[in-house]
Design a protein around this nucleic acid. Structure first.
Length: 1211
RNA sequence: GCCGCCGUGGCGAAAUUGGUAUACGCGUAGCACUCAAAAUGCUAUGACCGUAAGGUCUUGUGGGUUCGAGUCCCUCCGGCGGCACCA
C-alpha cells in the first residue's frame, strides 16, 4: 500500500489544474447558469499569508467548487489591494521603491495561495497598483469630478508634529501618533478632495432593502448613514447685533418638534458662526471668550477623557424667541452641541432629552414637562362605547423614615372585577387644588398617618386609561406623583367606609415592584428610584396649546404642518453620514488626475437661454431672470432664434453655434419647451464644459409626451405641429448628453397643458433630477409666470464655479506615479510628490497655459471600490469593463412596476424632487450584483458603503448594469492565535500556513480551517485540530487502499445500508455548504467514514459519491483517489464531474426509534415500523414494562404522540 | 449610555428549529503493537450515588409558558462586537 503523501499529491494536482486551465472561465459563449463568488482581495503585506487569510478563501472555494459541479459557470477571481500604508512606511524606512516591494510581496502571496489549491481564475488577477488598473480608478474619479461630486474643501487632518506627517485615522491611537513615540496628534487644516457620498445617503439606505446581507452588516450601514427625520425650526435672536437688521434667524434641527413648547433655552455649538457675529452684543464677552479658548485648546483626547461632563456658558444679553409661544429664552454655547451635525444649534428641551436635562440641572435652567407618559391598563382596558371620565389624581409614595418601607394600599373593593388592585396611595385632586394638599388629605383619610413631610414632586405627569368596573365607565387619569416621608407612626382613626375599601400595608422597597399590580406602577416606582431624568419616550402632549392631548406621532405631524404654514420651519431629514475625505498626502496611492490652472480659474460660466416655439424669451420671466443672473455675476446669452413659428432644429443649432462661446468655456444651458430638445442637442455638439443643463417643460417625441389637442386648441397650426414633431424626433443620443452635463434638472408642472409629466420617460436617459410644481402651467406668460424664484437654487454665485481645477483628458490616463527620491512627506504636510517640481509644473489641458498638478493621492479605499467590476473584464483597455461582460457576470436589474408612480403620488406639496426614471425596463429595479460576497466584519461599514456608492454612481451614469453591487453578503469570524488573542507579529502568535502545508498538507489545513467552529464566529487556532483532520484523511486513503470493493460493477450489489448512509450524507453536505455550516458537514463525513469502515466490502458507487462530496473541501486527495488504481479508471479532475443528487427512495427507513417519556422524562425507547399508526404506537408505549413501572398503576391523563419521534405520557 | 450578538464537558463545539442534550474533533486514561519511544489501532471519558442493574442532577442565574425548554417570554450576572454628546 502506498502511503498518503500530501506533498506529492497536492503538487501534482495543482500542476494539472493549472496546465489544464481548469478554473479559467469565459463569458463567451455565455452559459446560462453562472455564479460569481467574491472574496475580499488581500493586501500583500511583507509578512506573507497567515493562517487567518485562508478562512474566507476556503469557504468560498468550497462553495465555488460545489457550484461548478452543479453545472454553474463559476467566476472565482483573486487580486491584490496593494496600495497601503505599511508598504509606504517600509519605503520611508528603507528607501526601497514601493512598487518593487509590492511586486515581491505579490509573488509570495501568489505562491502561498496556489499552494492551498484554491480554484481561483488566476488569469483574471488584478493589482490595484498596476497603472493598467489604476488608470480606470482615475477615470472613475474624473467622472465624479465631472458630475460635481468631487470637490475641494478645507478639512482638518491628523498631524503628528514629531514625525511631521499627516496621519491616517487608523494611525491615531487614543489621540496619539502610532508611528513615533506616541506624540499627541494635532489637527491641521488643509484643502482636501471630498467625494459627496452624502448625496447618495438616501439611495444607499434604500438599496439595503433589496439585498441579502447578514443583518449585522445591514444594521451597521443603517446606523452609519444615520437617517433621522424631524424639522428645522427658525428662532429669531434678540437683540439684533449691530449692523444687522432685526429678525436675525437661528435654525435648529429637532427630531421632536412635538416638544417645542418645552424648549426652555437654546444652545449653539461653540463654532457656530453666530457667536462671532453676536460678539459686540454679548454682555459677558470675556467669559465667553475664555470658554471658547478653553474648548479650542481641548484635544479630542481630553474631550472624551473628561467623562463628558457638560460645560457651557450663557450668552448674556442675548435671547432667542421660541416661535410657538413668543417666549424669550436664554441662549448658551456648549460643546455638547456639535457644529458638524444638523444646524450646529439646538433648542433644548430638558424635560424630554437626557443631555439637555443634565445640562439644565447643572446650570439651573427651567425644566418644563410637555409630554406625559401614557398607559392603558391591559387587564381592564377602556371599553369602546362607554363614556370616559377624566380625573386629576395624585399618587403618593410614602416612605417611612424609621425603616425605609413604603406605604401602599391593598384594595378590597370591586373597582376591578376579578383582581384586587395593589397601589400606592392614590386620590383625586379637586379643581384648583394644590396636589400636595390633596395628597396629604388622601393619606390621612385612607391610612390615618399624619406626621408627613412633603419631599418633592417627581416632576412627571402620567396618563393612565382603564375601565372602572364598579361604575362601568372608562377613566382617564392624569396623575402627578409626589414623594412624602413619614416621620412617626402616630395615626388617626380611619373611617369605616375607608377601611372597607382598602387596607394600608408597609412593603419592603425590594418588594414594591412585585407587589404593585397596576400597569403604571412599575414605571412610577422605577422613576422614583432613578431620581432625576428626562422622559424621552413617546407619550401624550401636555401644556402644549394646540398639541395638548395628541399622541407624540400626531403631535409631530401637526407641529410640522403648523410650522410650514407659518413659514417658520419645515420637515427635514438629517444624516450622520459625512462626505468622504478622498485626499491623502502620501506617495503610495493613485495620483489624482487634475491640474490647477490659474488662467482657467478666471473664466466663469455663461448662461445660455434657449426659448421655445414662438420665441417667448422676452415675454415671460426671462427679463426677470436676466436681472437676477446679472446680480449673481453671470453673463446671459438669450438669442432670438430664426423661424419661430415653423422652427427647425438644424437652423437653430446653426444660430447657436455662431454665438460667441469659446470651445473651452463653461456654460449653464437653460432650455424652455421646444428649447429643451434644442438645449440637449446643443450640449451634444458643442465642446463647452456644461456645468448644468436645466430643462423647463421640455417637449418630447412620444405620443403621450405632448398634449396635441391642447396645443391645437391654443391656436397652433398643423404646419407648426409638424415642425415640432420633426424637431423632437431629432433629439437623439440623450444617454451621451447625460455624461456631458455635470448635472441635469428638469422642471415640470402638474397642470402644464402641453407637456404632461409623462415626458419624463422621454428624458429618462438623462437620469436628471426632476422637480414638480403645481400651478405653473407651461412656465410661460399664459400661466402668469413673470418670475420663477424656484430656479434660483440652481444658480449659485458665479464665483463658486470653476475653482480652476481641470481634469486631464481621459485618453491621457493613466497619470503614472513618478519615481521619487524620498518617500518622506514634506514638512508642510504635503505628499512627497509636491517636492518634484518638474513633475508638478505642467500645462493646462484646457487652455494650454501654465498649470500645476495636484499632489495628493487617493485613499486605499479607492482601488477596492470597484475591483469586482474589473474582474468581469480585467484586460479591457478601452473601458473599465464592457457592459456586455458586466451584464453576464453581474446580471441586470429587473423591473419593479409602479415604483415611479408611487414616488410621484407621494409628492406632498409640489417641490419634492426624485431621480427621474430612465427608460422602462432599466431602472426602478432590483436583483443583480455579485452573487455572493464574503468578507470581514471590519469592512462592513466603510469598504462596503464606499463600493456601493461607486457602483450606484456608475449605475446612474449607465455604465454598470445593476444598482447594487452585491446580491448577498456574509462574514467570517476572525481566526485568533493559539492564545485566543488577535494574531500579530508583535504578540508573536502568528501561525504560518506554509509550515502547516509542509507538515500536514493543504487538504488537512483547509479542512481544519472549515472544521474549527462556526464560520461566522471567531475561533482560536489549535494545531492539534489539524492533526485530527489529517487522521481523517489518512483513514479515507487507507479505506480505498485496504478495503475490498464490490467487483460487480456500480451498485451491482444492493448495499442498502451504505446507500442510505451516503444519500443522507449528500443531503447534509449539500445544505450545509449552502448555509456555510462547514463544521457540521465535515463532522458528518467523519461519522460516515467511521461507519463505513466497519464494512468488509464497500460499494464502489457509494465510495465514488463520497469522493465527490469530499472534493470541495479536500480537492487534492479527492482527485488523486478518484484517479487511482486499483478500483477506478476515471480520468481527470472531479471539478468537471457532476455533484450527486439525493434520491429519496434511498432515504426510506423501515424502522424508527420512538422515545417514550413519562411526565417529561425519558423512560424507554422502542424500535417500531415506520408505517405503524399512531394508536398502535401509543398502545405499544403504554404496555412497555419500563413505562408501566413508572406509571405506578395510575391511569395516564394525556398521551401525546409526536410523529416519528416520541410518545409523551402524563399521569 | 444606546444598538446587536453570545454564555452547553478539561478544550473547539453539535442538537432536525419546542421533542433522545453533550454528535464530530481535540485532550486525557487504559490496553494492543514495539527492546523503547513516536505513529497507529481498540476501549473509556458531563457530574454525583451505586459492585451492578439502575437512579438523581446538569446547557451562566432566578422565575414563567408548555405534556415537554439549550431552544420561546421576563429578571439578573458575565463576555464579545459596533456606535458613542448625532439634538
Amino acid at each position: 500500500m502506498q502511503k498518503y503523501d500530501p506533498k506529492k499529491v497536492e503538487k501534482k494536482w495543482q500542476q494539472q489544474w493549472e496546465e489544464g486551465r481548469v478554473f479559467e472561465v469565459s463569458e463567451d459563449p455565455p452559459q446560462e447558469k453562472k455564479f460569481y463568488a467574491l472574496i475580499e482581495f488581500p493586501y500583500p503585506s511583507g509578512a506573507g499569508l497567515h493562517v487567518g487569510h485562508p478562512r474566507p478563501f476556503t469557504a468560498m472555494d468550497v462553495i465555488s467548487r460545489k457550484r461548478r459541479m452543479e453545472g454553474y459557470n463559476v467566476l472565482y477571481p483573486i487580486g491584490f489591494d496593494a496600495f497601503g500604508l505599511p508598504t509606504e512606511n517600509y519605503a520611508i524606512k528603507t528607501g526601497r521603491p514601493p512598487a518593487e516591494v509590492t511586486a515581491e510581496n505579490i509573488a509570495t502571496f501568489t505562491r502561498q495561495l496556489k499552494a492551498l489549491g484554491f480554484s481561483f481564475d488566476w488569469s483574471r488577477a488584478v493589482d490595484t497598483t498596476d497603472p493598467k488598473y489604476y488608470r480606470w480608478t482615475q477615470w472613475i474619479f474624473l467622472q465624479f469630478f465631472k458630475h460635481g461630486l468631487a470637490y475641494k474643501k478645507n478639512q482638518p487632518i491628523n498631524w503628528c508634529p514629531s514625525c511631521k506627517i499627516g496621519l491616517a485615522n487608523e494611525e491615531v491611537v487614543n489621540g496619539a501618533c502610532e508611528r513615533c513615540g506616541y506624540a499627541p496628534v494635532e489637527k491641521r487644516n488643509k484643502e482636501q478632495w471630498m467625494l459627496a457620498i452624502t448625496k447618495y445617503a438616501d439611495k444607499l439606505l434604500a438599496g439595503l432593502k433589496e439585498v441579502d446581507y447578514i443583518p449585522q452588516a445591514r444594521v451597521q450601514q443603517e446606523n452609519w448613514i444615520g437617517r433621522s427625520e424631524g424639522a428645522v425650526v427658525r428662532f429669531s435672536v434678540i437683540p439684533a447685533p449691530a449692523g444687522i437688521q432685526s429678525g436675525m434667524i437661528v435654525e435648529v434641527f429637532t427630531t421632536r418638534p412635538d416638544t417645542l413648547f418645552g424648549a426652555t433655552y437654546m444652545v449653539l455649538a461653540p463654532e457656530h458662526e453666530l457667536v462671532k457675529r453676536l460678539k459686540s452684543r454679548i454682555l459677558n464677552a470675556a467669559e465667553v471668550g475664555a470658554y471658547l479658548e478653553q474648548v479650542n485648546k481641548k484635544t479630542e483626547q481630553e474631550r472624551t477623557a473628561e467623562g463628558r461632563e457638560k460645560t457651557g456658558v450663557e450668552l448674556k444679553g442675548i435671547k432667542a424667541i421660541n416661535p410657538v409661544n413668543n417666549e424669550a429664552i436664554p441662549v448658551w454655547i456648549a460643546d455638547y452641541v456639535l457644529a458638524s451635525y444638523g444646524t450646529g444649534a439646538i433648542m433644548a428641551v430638558p424635560a424630554h432629552d437626557q443631555r439637555d436635562w443634565e445640562f439644565a440641572s447643572k446650570y439651573h435652567l427651567p425644566i418644563k414637562q410637555v409630554v406625559a407618559a401614557h398607559f392603558i391598563e391591559p387587564v381592564h382596558p377602556p371599553q369602546p362605547g362607554k363614556k370616559t371620565k377624566r380625573r386629576q389624581t395624585v399618587h403618593a409614595i410614602v416612605r417611612r423614615k424609621s425603616d425605609g418601607k413604603i406605604l401602599m394600599l391593598q384594595w378590597k373593593g370591586a373597582m376591578w372585577e376579578g383582581r384586587e388592585p395593589r397601589t400606592f396611595i392614590i386620590g383625586g385632586t379637586e379643581a384648583g387644588e394644590d396636589p400636595v394638599v390633596s395628597a396629604e388629605r388622601e393619606i390621612k383619610e385612607e391610612t390615618g398617618y399624619r406626621n408627613l413631610r412633603f419631599v418633592k414632586d417627581l416632576g412627571l405627569e402620567v396618563h393612565t386609561e382603564y375601565h372602572a368596573a364598579h361604575k362601568d365607565e372608562n377613566r382617564y387619569a392624569e396623575i402627578r406623583v409626589l414623594h412624602f416621608e413619614l416621620n412617626s407612626d402616630e395615626q388617626d382613626t380611619v373611617s369605616a367606609a375607608e377601611m372597607e375599601k382598602h387596607t394600608p400595608v408597609w412593603i419592603e422597597p425590594e418588594e414594591v415592584g412585585n407587589f404593585i399590580n397596576v400597569v403604571d406602577g412599575p414605571f412610577i416606582w422605577n422613576w422614583f428610584n432613578h431620581g432625576g431624568q428626562a422622559y424621552t419616550p413617546d407619550g401624550i402632549s401636555i401644556n402644549s396649546d394646540f398639541l395638548t392631548g395628541l399622541s407624540t406621532p400626531e403631535a409631530k405631524a401637526k407641529m410640522i404642518a403648523w410650522l410650514e404654514e407659518q413659514g417658520i420651519g419645515k420637515r427635514q431629514v438629517n444624516y450622520k453620514l459625512r462626505d468622504w475625505v478622498f485626499s491623502r498626502q502620501r506617495y503610495w496611492g493613485e495620483p489624482i488626475p487634475l491640474v490647477y490652472c490659474e488662467n482657467c480659474a478666471q473664466r466663469k460660466p455663461k448662461i445660455l437661454y434657449i426659448h421655445g416655439i414662438y420665441g417667448y424669451s422676452e415675454e415671460n420671466w426671462i427679463p426677470w431672470f436676466r436681472k437676477e443672473m446679472k446680480k449673481r455675476g453671470y453673463e446671459v446669452l438669450a438669442p432670438n432664434l430664426p423661424n419661430n413659428v415653423h422652427p427647425s432644429l438644424d437652423k437653430w443649432l446653426k444660430t447657436l453655434a455662431d454665438l460667441p462661446i469659446g470651445k473651452d468655456e463653461s456654460l449653464i444651458v437653460v432650455g424652455h419647451s421646444l428649447g429643451g430638445p434644442a438645449a440637449c442637442q446643443f450640449v451634444l455638439k458643442h465642446s463647452a464644459q456644461i456645468e448644468r443643463l436645466i430643462l423647463i417643460s421640455p417637449t418630447g417625441d412620444r405620443q403621450e409626451a405632448i398634449n396635441w389637442k391642447n396645443l391645437r386648441d391654443a391656436g397652433c397650426d398643423e404646419e407648426s405641429i409638424e415642425c415640432i414633431k420633426k424637431f423632437n424626433a431629432a433629439n437623439q443620443s440623450l444617454d451621451k448628453v447625460r455624461n456631458l452635463a455635470k448635472e441635469t434638472i428638469i422642471y415640470l408642472s402638474e397642470d402644464d397643458p402641453f407637456v404632461p409629466l409623462s415626458v419624463t420617460d422621454n428624458y429618462s436617459p438623462l437620469r436628471a433630477k426632476v422637480k414638480i410644481f403645481k400651478n405653473k402651467g407651461h412656465f410661460n406668460e399664459r400661466a402668469g409666470i413673470l418670475e420663477l424664484p424656484e430656479i434660483l437654487d440652481e444658480f449659485p454665485d458665479v464665483q463658486s464655479f470653476n475653482s480652476g481645477w481641470i481634469p486631464l483628458p481621459e485618453d491621457k490616463l493613466p497619470l503614472e506615479l513618478p519615481k521619487v527620491a524620498k518617500y518622506q512627506p514634506t514638512d508642510t504636510g504635503e505628499s512627497p510628490l509636491a517636492a518634484m517640481t518638474e513633475w508638478v509644473k505642467t500645462t493646462c489641458p484646457r487652455c494650454g497655459g501654465p498649470a500645476r498638478r495636484e499632489t495628493d493621492t487617493m485613499p486605499n479605499w479607492a482601488g477596492s471600490s470597484w475591483y469586482f467590476l474589473r474582474y468581469c473584464d480585467p484586460h479591457n483597455n478601452k473601458e473599465f469593463a464592457s457592459m456586455k461582460k458586466l451584464e453576464y457576470w453581474m446580471g441586470r436589474n429587473t423591473v419593479i412596476p409602479n415604483e415611479r408612480e408611487e414616488s410621484l403620488s407621494q409628492s406632498p406639496n409640489g417641490q419634492r424632487s426624485f431621480p427621474l426614471a430612465p427608460a422602462r425596463g432599466q431602472d426602478d429595479s432590483t436583483g443583480g450584483g455579485v452573487d455572493w460576497y464574503n468578507g470581514g466584519m471590519e469592512h462592513t461599514v466603510l469598504h462596503l458603503l464606499y463600493s456601493r456608492f461607486w457602483n450606484q454612481f456608475l449605475y446612474d451614469l449607465g455604465l454598470v448594469p445593476t444598482r447594487e453591487p452585491y446580491k448577498k453578503r456574509t462574514s467570517h469570524g476572525l481566526i485568533l492565535g493559539p492564545d485566543g488573542e488577535k494574531m500579530s507579529k508583535s504578540r508573536g502568535n502568528v501561525v504560518n500556513p506554509d509550515e502547516m502545508v509542509e507538515q500536514y498538507g493543504a487538504d488537512a489545513l483547509r479542512m481544519y480551517i472549515m472544521f474549527m467552529g462556526p464560520f461566522d464566529q471567531p475561533v482560536a487556532w489549535d494545531t492539534n485540530g489539524v492533526k485530527g483532520v489529517k487522521r481523517f484523511l489518512e483513514k479515507v486513503w487507507a479505506i480505498q487502499n485496504n478495503n475490498k470493493f464490490d467487483r460487480e460493477g456500480e451498485d451491482g450489489w444492493i448495499f442498502d445500508d451504505q446507500l442510505k448512509l451516503v444519500h443522507k450524507l449528500i443531503r447534509k453536505i449539500t445544505t450545509d455548504i449552502d448555509e456555510m455550516k462547514f463544521n457540521t458537514a465535515i463532522a458528518k463525513m467523519m461519522e460516515f467514514i467511521n461507519e463505513i469502515s466497519s464494512n468488509s466490502v464497500i460499494s464502489r458507487g457509494v465510495w465514488k459519491i463520497f469522493l465527490k462530496l469530499l472534493s470541495p473541501f479536500a480537492p487534492h486527495i479527492a482527485d488523486e483517489l478518484w484517479n487511482s488504481e486499483p478500483f477506478f479508471e476515471n480520468n481527470g479532475s472531479l471539478a468537471s464531474e457532476k455533484w450527486p443528487i439525493v434520491d429519496e427512495k434511498n432515504l426510506y427507513e423501515e424502522r424508527m426509534t420512538i422515545v417514550i417519556q413519562v411526565n417529561g422524562k425519558v423512560r424507554a425507547r422502542q424500535q417500531v415500523g415506520t408505517n405503524l399508526d399512531e394508536e398502535i404506537i401509543k398502545r405499544n408505549a403504554l404496555s412497555d414494562d419500563r413505562v408501566q413501572k413508572w406509571l405506578e398503576g395510575k391511569a395516564p391523563k394525556k398521551i401525546i404522540y409526536v410523529k416519528g419521534r416520541l410518545v409523551s405520557i402524563v399521569v
